[in-house]
Amino acid sequence: MEILMSLVIGALLASAVYLMLSKSLLRIIIGTGLLSHGAHLLIITMGGLKRGAAPLLGEEAAAYVDPLPQALILTAIVISFGVTAFFLVLAYRAYQELGTDNMDEMRGNEAND
């Protein structure tokens, strides 16, 4: 399972990077979304999969899965939500102001250096 997940994570990250390198703003945002999904899966896979019951003491199981990666991911999920929302608004404001969503045209020019 871990090997399979590693491949899925690799695919997620590869496509995320590909999207982020493209010129269209929306594709870049979608790319960051995929990137965070990949990262979350990576963290949980690193903690080992299905090694016990859910990390609730109420389960009274002999073994629990690793709770720490889950806590980290929970934090990451919420932050990535905030960041994605920020990106979205940034993108649409930039589009409104500049009238383009092409990253090449948004290049900082000499006069602004």
Partner: peptide, 8 residues
């Protein structure tokens, strides 16, 4: 605190 859930 005891079951799935919480502030988030």
């Amino acid at each position: 605190h005891y079951n799935p859930g919480g502030g988030f």
